[in-house]
Computed example of a mutant assay.
Amino acid sequence: MSALFWRILGTNGLIFVIGVAALALTPLTVSSRILLSEFVVLALGLTLMVAANALLLRVSLAPLAGLTTLMARMDSLRSGDRLATTPNRDLFRLVDQFNAMLDRLEADRSISTAVVLDAQEAERRRIAQELHDEIGQSLTVVLLELKSVVSRAPEEVAEDLRGVQEVVRSSLDEVRRVAHRLRPGVLDDLGLTSALTSLAGDFSETHGPRVTRRVQTGLEGLGADAELVIYRIAQEGLTNVWRHSGARNAELSLQQEKDGTVVLRVVDDGSGPPKEAGAGIRGMQERAMLIGAQLTIGPAEGGGTEVRLVIPPRGSRPAPGRPAK
C-alpha cells in the first residue's frame, strides 16, 4: 500500500510542478479577472489531473474488485478458489497474503474434518461390533431358548411363542442390517465394487425405489480413503432418495474414464434437488473435500435429482488431511 501512496503523491506533485513551470517559464498568466483563454488552460489542467488520478487509482485498485468478488462467493466447503496474481504490484502483497490465509484456513479445516470423520468411522466400527457381538448374540440366544420352550409348550401357548420368535428374528435381522450399514464388512473384505452392489441391493429390498446398478469393475488408483468416501456418499445419496425424493426408480453408477478420473452418480426420478443443504449433504461435501473431489447436486435430465462425484486421478489428489488445490 505504501507504493500506491507514493505513486498517487508523485503523480499529483508532477502535475503541480508542470503547472507552476508553465506559469513561470511561459507567457501564460492568470489575470485578476480571469480571461476565457486562461479559464480554458486551467480547466484543461484540472481535467488532466483528475483523469490521471482516476486512471492511476482504477488500475492500482483493480485487484480489490476481484478480492471483494472472491470474498462474496467463498464457500468453506469448496477449496482451491483463489485470486490470481496480476502484474499490478501495488496490491500484490495483499493478494498473496489473502491467498496464503485461505490456504491456512483450508488446511486447518481439512485436518479438523479428517480427524472428525476418522473418529466417526472408528465410532461406527465400535458400535457395529457391539451390535454384532453383544445384541446380536443375545438375540440369538433368545431365539434358541424360545425354540426349546416352543417344543415343550402346550399348543395354545406355543402359537403365541412362535409369534414372539418372529418378532425376535425380525429384530435380529434389523440389528444385523444396522451393523452392516454402520461398517460394511464387504467393503473391507471384497472391495468397493461388491460393497456398492450390496448397498444397492439392500435399498432395493426396503420397499423403496428400484435401484439399477452400473458399477465398473477393476477400478485403479483409488486407495482406501477414496473408496470409503465413494461408499459413504453413495450410501447417503441412496438414503436421501429413499427418505425424501418419492422416487420410483434410481440408478447407482461408478465409472472410470481413460485419464483415471472416477465418476460416481446417484440419479433418481423423484421430486428434484433439495432447496437447502441439510446435514447429510454437508457431510457429503466435507468428505468430497478431503480427497479433492468435486461434488455437485442438481436436477437430473428428465426430472429428479443427480448426485455427481468426480474423483481426479490419484496423482492429482491431495494427501488426506490437506486441502485440494
Rank of each mutant, 00 (worst) to 15 (best):
Leu192Thr: 00
Leu192Tyr: 00
Leu192Pro: 01
Thr193His: 09
Thr193Val: 15
Ser194Cys: 10
Ser194Gln: 13
Ser194Leu: 14
Ser194Thr: 15
Ala195Trp: 03
Ala195Tyr: 05
Leu196Trp: 05
Leu196Val: 01
Thr197Met: 07
Thr197Phe: 04
Thr197Tyr: 08
Leu199Phe: 05
Leu199Asp: 02
Leu199Ser: 04
Ala200Phe: 09
Ala200Gly: 15
Ala200Ile: 10
Ala200Cys: 11
Gly201Trp: 08
Gly201Cys: 07
Gly201Ser: 12
Gly201Leu: 06
Asp202Cys: 05
Asp202Phe: 10
Phe203Asn: 04
Phe203Glu: 10
Ser204Asn: 09
Ser204Lys: 06
Ser204Cys: 04
Ser204Trp: 05
Glu205Pro: 00
Glu205Lys: 06
Thr206Pro: 00
Thr206Cys: 06
Thr206Lys: 11
His207Met: 10
His207Pro: 09
His207Asp: 13
His207Arg: 13
Gly208Pro: 03
Pro209Arg: 01
Arg210His: 13
Arg210Gly: 15
Val211Tyr: 02
Thr212Trp: 08
Thr212Met: 12
Thr212Lys: 14
Arg213Pro: 02
Arg213Ile: 04
Arg213Asn: 04
Arg213Cys: 02
Arg214Leu: 15
Arg214Asn: 15
Arg214Trp: 07
Val215Trp: 06
Val215Pro: 11
Thr217Pro: 03
Gly218Asp: 00
Leu219Phe: 04
Glu220Ser: 10
Gly221Ile: 04
Leu222Ser: 10
Leu222Arg: 11
Leu222Asn: 09
Leu222Thr: 11
Gly223Leu: 10
Gly223Thr: 03
Ala224Tyr: 09
Ala224Ser: 11
Ala224Leu: 14
Ala224Thr: 15
Ala224Pro: 11
Asp225Asn: 06
Asp225Ser: 09
Asp225Pro: 01
Glu227His: 01
Glu227Trp: 02
Glu227Phe: 03
Leu228Asp: 15
Val229Lys: 00
Val229Glu: 00
Ile230Tyr: 06
Ile230Ser: 07
Ile230Asp: 03
Tyr231Ala: 14
Tyr231Ile: 12
Arg232Met: 11
Arg232Val: 12
